[in-house]
Amino acid sequence: MSLPEITQTLLKAKKEKGLSFADLEKILGRDEVWIAAVFYRQASASEEEAKLLLEALELGPIYIKELTECPVKGLGPIVPTDPLIYRFYEIMQVYGFPIKDVIQEKFGDGIMSAIDFTLDIEKEADPKGDRVKIIMSGKFLPYKKW
């Protein structure tokens, strides 16, 4: 997968500054996952957020316009090949319909919003090996009848 030039620039500056997404969360007052989504052009920043981010990374204002534009979202029409990203694809292949059925049993006919949505990633200590804990919270949107 080739990354957009802006993504490469942001990631390089972040690495050079020795910053983590959690560090940037403290500076911007936004969640680290959302900030990472801005880096990868899956989310757009406000002008103020873009300025704060670029100041933290010591990059010029030349990137403000690009960071505030509405992005084209998604990975494209291919099956992801990165092993970590592929696991999410695999999870949906195996558990997608079960998750859908359980959600619809609890809420009715509808979907979980990916717009009114938060995602948190936590590290959970476990004697058998640390675990990744992913917490997704999306507003339930019932399908309308007309």
Rank of each mutant, 00 (worst) to 15 (best):
T68E: 02
E32K: 14
L52D: 14
A50E: 11
G29N: 09
S113E: 06
Q104W: 00
L59S: 03
F107H: 10
E25M: 08
F88S: 04
L75S: 09
D116R: 05
P71Q: 04
P71Y: 02
M92S: 13
P77K: 03
K100S: 13
R30E: 12
F39M: 05
L53R: 08
V102A: 06
G110F: 02
F88V: 03
L28M: 09
G110R: 02
E90H: 07
E48K: 08
G60V: 12
P61Q: 14
I78T: 13
Y95P: 00
G60K: 08
I62D: 12
A36M: 10
D82S: 00
V33F: 13
D116M: 06
A56Q: 11
Y95C: 13
Y89Q: 05
Q42M: 07
Q93F: 08
I115C: 00
A36S: 15
Y89P: 04
I115W: 00
V33M: 08
P71A: 12
F39D: 01
A36P: 02
D101S: 12
Y86A: 05
Y40H: 03
I85F: 05
S46H: 09
G108L: 00
E58Q: 12
E58K: 14
E25C: 12
Y95N: 11
Y63G: 08
D82K: 01
Y89K: 03
I91G: 00
L53N: 03
G29R: 13
L67E: 00
A56K: 10
Y95V: 02
T68I: 13
P83E: 05
V33R: 10
I64N: 05
A37R: 10
I78A: 11
K65I: 10
R41K: 14
L28T: 11
G60C: 09
K26N: 15
D31G: 15
T81C: 05
F97I: 08
I99P: 07
A45L: 10
E55S: 15
I111Q: 04
Y95Q: 11
I27F: 14
T81A: 07
F39T: 02
E48A: 15
P61T: 15
R41M: 03
I78Y: 13
I111A: 07
I115E: 08
S113Q: 03
Y40I: 00
E55A: 11
Y86Q: 05
D109P: 04
S46C: 13
E105Y: 04
A56Y: 09
Q93P: 01
P77D: 09
G110T: 06
L52F: 13
E69Y: 03
P98D: 04
T68L: 03
G76H: 11
S46M: 08
I64W: 03
L84P: 01
T68C: 09
L57Q: 11
D109R: 04
S46P: 11
R30G: 06
G76R: 07
